[in-house]
Amino acid sequence: METAYLIETVIKIVVILLVFSALAGIGTYFERKILAFMQRRLGPTYVGPYGLLQVAADGVKLFTKEDIIPTNVVGRIFKIAPVITAATAFMAAAAIPFLPSFSIGGYEVHPIVADINIGILYILGIMGVGLYGPLLGGMASANKFSLLSAARGAAVFISYEVVTGLSILAPIMIVGSLSLVDFNNYQAVNGWLVFSQPVAFILFWIAAFAETGRTPFHLVANDHEIIDGFGTEYSGMRWGLFFIGEYANMFFISFVIPLIFLGGFGDGSVLGAFALLGKMAFFFFFFLWTRAAWPDVRPDQLMMLCWKILMPIAVINVVITGFVMM
């Protein structure tokens, strides 16, 4: 029993790592194609059919590029920062049920690494730790633009954790559990939570953009003001790890939003599994769509949005939910 469980868990971890590292690469291809389509360009076209092999070309470039450590940086912190971003993104995936459980040759497989009963809290906490990557990278770089980016990263982190936590509190109160599997099962019986908690859904969705550092909250690496922010001094695979972390985070949060609010995989049929993948694809597409359609907000606007608008709404939502439930 013990050994079988161990082997099963290791296989799951390896599969998740491989699938989502590859998806992170393909995600960049999607991003470039969709942005190009929306901006009336062609995007990558030269390498392979429709530019599909561009991902491989980029991978070869990143792996073979020289790994430069600039003179005045704090060496160890500078080296470990990208690893933190990538590693925490994948650690967060441990509590996400990607598909309903299915059986291979009579052996029941649960596509979740660890069904701990505080799944949501764990995922949000680990994703929050992921913001240490940009922060440390920026602070260790000995570069004023990187430092500025790190400061913004810290500000976003401290602010938007509050909105994420408060917005998700109301659905947790209704379901009475912190496990994503319980959320899914509750919604399979009682209907989607987005209908009873539309405000929480919108707030969580907005905060997801801040958590993953995407446009319009892309202040950590605001390209048109501060070069590439925390990534300025990085080259080669260390820079690539930042990228893998960011895209993996986008995929994981795109899984978490439908699981919490949009019914997840429903009753666990094959159709439900595909529906979850479809919802995930929509939310991932929405990240790219927003990037094409909206400019970045200013840091002070970001803070105002968080503390003066989103947080009060979240608190009021929790209070009203509490009264209705009583």
Binding site: L121, L124, G125, V129, Y132, A140, A154, A155, I158
Partner: peptide
């Protein structure tokens, strides 16, 4: 408690970082 430990202390140490940023040249 484990998850709360991660959430609370990662945020708290983040605040310490910003003080470090303000008072020292951290490099």
């Amino acid at each position: 408690l484990g998850a709360v430990q991660i959430v609370v202390y990662s945020g708290a140490v983040m605040a310490l970082y910003s003080f470090g940023m303000m008072f020292f040249d951290t490099t």
